[in-house]
Design a protein around this nucleic acid. Sequence first.
DNA 1: AGGTTATATAACGGTTTTGTTATACACGGA
DNA 2: TCCGTGTATAACAAAACCGTTATATAACCT
Lengths: 105, 105
Amino acid sequence: MHTAEELSKVLKVLADPTRLTMLKQMQDGEQCACSFVDCFDISQPAISRHLKMMRQAGLLLERRDKQWIHYRLNEASPFYSIVVDLLGQVEMIDASCDCDAECAI
Amino acid sequence: MHTAEELSKVLKVLADPTRLTMLKQMQDGEQCACSFVDCFDISQPAISRHLKMMRQAGLLLERRDKQWIHYRLNEASPFYSIVVDLLGQVEMIDASCDCDAECAI
DNA sequence: AGGTTATATAACGGTTTTGTTATACACGGA
DNA sequence: TCCGTGTATAACAAAACCGTTATATAACCT
């Protein structure tokens, strides 16, 4: 149970097609930040800021491996079930564009 | 099932504490616009624009009765179940401030 | 018709969002 | 230590958001 203020803050984070798609991809497992840079037609700094916003909202966890940073959904977030429910309503367009095997932007 | 673009547009409409609270109140039944003006510490034009935004997103239906306009949730909206689910996560703060019996701003 | 009430629209301003480019930081390898 | 790769931050600009006040429109009532 959340206040309207709390929920609206999280919804603001979710209310972006790029971020929704990123989250959807993370449902398939951990994603390297560089894979997002590959996937979307926006700059690397833009991707970085989308990730930061979701991290600050408590929706993501990160794991550093050498120079790569891998992001995943934070299942302990109080909003995790809401995120999962919403992502269940999202259809994926371009299926896969991960570069996890060999990260090289 | 919706595209990320479609869903993000609706989430943008939902991502506001005033609008979330208005929607929550409409779950209790039709609400006269003037009751919202009573409830919130924002101007009447601001209320009017919030309502317009939700109407344009297909989330609301309106019914005119004399000079009063009553708004209610649009159960036929493709996003209705999402709205209901989200509202289920919202706790109401100030219980009731309706003026439906005698509308007089 | 004229006045009152309810709602909507117009015009404006401050803040937030979201992209960009340029630059800094972190890490690994020759 | 220097260079390349991956990621983050800074500074900026355009657009959207959300409030305000002023004004218009719609409906009711005498």
